[in-house]
Design a protein around this nucleic acid. Structure first.
Lengths: 332, 332
DNA sequence: ATGAAAGCGCTAACAT
DNA sequence: ATGTTAGCGCTTTCAT
């Protein structure tokens, strides 16, 4: 910047004014400065600027996802990016793979880079460690799952209601023996979906049977194995509820492997690309990652813009998308 | 940091030494400093540190993708993240949607944040604007597609060879009239795949027919429409080569819509989740996004670590995955 | 409208 | 082993 000032034959402050688009510079000098900037290929150093600015924003936010490559998460990522981009804000993205340590690590790195705000799909069992950060002024929004031991803005889906609706839907098609495939119940959404499943069964007057309930799954392969095991039960289920996009893929694979995909009903949590192209097409409980991401970004930027409304807990509805696999009737 | 120093009763430099894990601090003082850090919830400001450091690295890289939500791109993203994470480096990610302006804009923002390096899936037609940046010391790697008017490290796949192999494969199953669905040919990979298609046809002694070649596609919907149109040709193709993951989905949809998915062969470029679960399962030219991302990160970090080897142009092989749709024989 | 100078949080000499 | 001080690239008073 000093070089630019020298070349343009002006003071440092004037260059700063031009770079920041401030008023109080004559068009003539502004043009001279701009010419020097172009000629020297000068690039403003936002990090240095932030250091001294009255409003010390870095125009940067951090995004902690379960996995940037998971289609649900990456769709959410894109929604956040679009919202941020419209404000000239850049986003750091990171995956924590349901690992609480990695979550803390990522957020710690974000803090070191002085991000203005953080959107996080939480993995950890305790978020009280973020209290100081919130007090320090970093905006924080939890998505998909609420934080624990911390009050913060959240955007979640009605997991319990969605899972219950799925079970009720299966019940209407005659099913009473319904298997469940879920993630570790330490994950809030996994727990809520399991509870929704249980509630749904209760509404049908059915006791859950641990023999056909599998939790703690983490991959397509896990789910495929679990589904296969459940199907080998001496009293196998007539329907499956899978509580996450990848698990549904695993469940369908397992059913195909034994050629029973047209006999055993499946409802999956999360919609996914090509769900409508499988045979039978897969009925899902859909919640829109784009909508969730947009809502989260909206909350985040509201606080970044200085508003301090009371904590908000947005709960987005889920939607049952009937495609076939969930409408398979029980065999008599 | 000043507060920490005061609370610990030491000098500023000592705190800096502790924070940066440098030697020359007695265990006792180090412990006192650490205690003060914890108590004050002090967080090191990397941006400020970078400003004065001899080696002015921000431990940050930028990643420009076509779309963070595209499965191919997000898998690549994850591979880069994993590599970076092992080095304690954070990654900015951004989507440019094949828009050259957006590419420049993103890279410009990255520069302002003083990223150490940039990995880019290029969209623009001219990358000479990055020359100054490279000379300035920013490491730069192009992925999936080479830059134009700039010499830089690249990691690409053998697009031409892959497309040609696909056509030859279809040829071996009796096909001579093969339709093509591709993106805008201003995109290097799209052009290479089209040329591979043409070369493959030439090897079969066939002239390409513009009536069944569609380029300039950008979405599943585009591809579905284009495929449907091609199928309505007075002399419709007996096989389709789709040159990108989303286009293959569109092609399959179009074939299903007219119930001809078991008559007309399809080979898709890019593998995708569930390709093996469709009926028929989809034969693809696969190139591994994880491998591409890893290779790109490797090149990038080699330069970040100070090595200045000659520019490298890694070309990864593609692999034909036979699943059924590409092995449908021509009807007699 | 413009410039000089102080200072943001930190690191890197140079002291001691 | 530890403290002092200059200065990184910038913004912000405060002058003029």
């Amino acid at each position: 910047m000093l070089d630019v000032a020298a070349l343009a034959g002006v003071g440092l402050a004037t260059v700063s004014r031009v770079v920041n688009g401030k008023t109080g510079v004559s068009p003539a000098t502004a043009a001279r400065v701009q010419a020097a900037i172009d000629r020297l290929d000068y690039r403003h150093n936002v990090n240095a600027a932030t250091l001294r600015r009255a409003n010390p924003k870095t125009a940067t936010i951090g995004l902690v996802l379960e996995d940037v490559a998971n289609p649900f998460m990456s769709a959410l990522h894109r929604a956040v990016e679009d919202y941020a981009r419209a404000r000239g804000v850049l986003v750091f993205a990171g995956s924590c793979d349901e690992d609480a340590d990695r979550e803390r690590e990522l957020i710690s790195e974000f803090r070191s880079r002085r991000v203005d705000g953080i959107i996080v799909v939480p993995a950890g069992p305790d978020h009280s460690y973020l209290l100081a950060e919130v007090r320090h002024g970093t905006a924080l929004v939890f998505v998909d799952r609420p934080p624990r031991f911390l009050d913060a803005d959240t955007v979640t889906a009605d997991d319990l209601g969605g899972a219950r609706a799925a079970v009720e839907h299966l019940g209407r098609h005659g099913h009473r023996r319904i298997g469940f495939l879920g993630a570790d119940v330490s994950i809030t959404t996994a727990d809520a979906r399991l509870r929704g499943y249980t509630e749904g069964l209760a509404a049908l007057g059915v006791e859950p049977d641990p023999a056909i309930v599998r939790t703690g799954l983490a991959s397509i392969e896990d789910a495929e194995e679990a589904a296969a095991a459940i199907l080998r039960d001496h009293d196998p289920p007539t329907a499956l509820l899978s509580a996450q996009n990848y698990f549904t893929v695993g469940a369908v694979k397992a059913l195909r492997a034994v050629g029973r995909q047209r006999e055993i009903a499946v409802v999956g949590y999360d919609d996914f690309l090509l769900a409508d192209m499988l045979e039978p097409a897969v009925t899902v409980i859909a919640h829109d990652p784009v909508e969730i991401g947009r809502a989260a970004a909206e909350l985040l930027f509201r606080r970044l813009d200085g508003a301090s409304p009371p904590r908000e807990h947005v709960v987005l509805p889920t939607r049952l998308v009937e495609r076939g696999s969930g409408e398979i009737r029980v065999r008599r």
